[in-house]
Amino acid sequence: MKSFSALALLLGSLFSQAVMAAENTCDDTTDCIRQGSWDLGIALGYGVKSNPLKDYKDIPIYVLPTVAYYGEKWFFDNGALGYTLTEQERFTLNLVTGFSSDRAYFYRWDPSNIFLAGSSQALQQAPIARTTWELTPPIGPLEERSFTYLGGMEAYIYNRFGTWRVALLHDLFDVHNGMEGQIKWNYHWSHQELSLDFAAFLDWKSQEIVDYYYGVRPSESAYWSLNYQAESGWNSGVEFTARYHMTPEWELLMTARYTRFADTIADSPLLDEDDGYAYLIGAAYRF
């Protein structure tokens, strides 16, 4: 709860300054997009998104599309719909919505996975290993984890050390009534045809979110539903993206992400990994 209060305080103090009109503040320290036109692209290559769920397969990535549209205030960017309340040289404040990333581990066609095109059978549950029955009681077929959308506010702070993003999001569809807080630092560097992005992030997930996705229901395992108690926790991780622009349309691409799950998530009996990764190496075409 302290974490939530700190995020709310930070966003609130920024909002109180949000009175000036937006201005064109795009420079070479951030990625830029042409206002009022669609940015469509597709990356082809090979990659993997690991799946920490026990007996669930990793997700291969062969295609990675990108779809974005930025108007004067509204924007749509790979599934995130937002409205810019103010954009200044030093900071931006947005109302924003986005998918929850946790459900994507359970369903191949979760909207979060639309932007990862791999095998349609990627998440098919394999038979539960029986060799560990005596040590860990088995878990039956999982109940449905419903789709939901998160909505809230995000703030970007720009300085010479990079871009900071602070976001506070809440479940919009009353599925789990949980909250998520996100803090991310990103450093964008470009020289001639090469551009690099380094990022480190912390994602706070409320007890409701952790319990909804990683908690065990009585129908799944009576034993684990009593013996695993979900709590709120922080995921942490790093990202790296390298792009080399060969022509205005074609670029070579390498992107990777590593996530270390919060202890409370890693302790879930549904998981057999305490971290996750994803990467893609290929070529991208911008239309």
């Binding site: 990108t66 931006t92 970007y156 992005d197 990022a199 992107t255 994803a278 893609l280 991208a284």
Partner: peptide, 12 residues
């Protein structure tokens, strides 16, 4: 032009 807030090639 304006700032783009998301990495176009972010892997969720």
């Amino acid at each position: 032009t304006r700032r783009r807030f998301r990495n176009p090639w972010s892997i969720f």
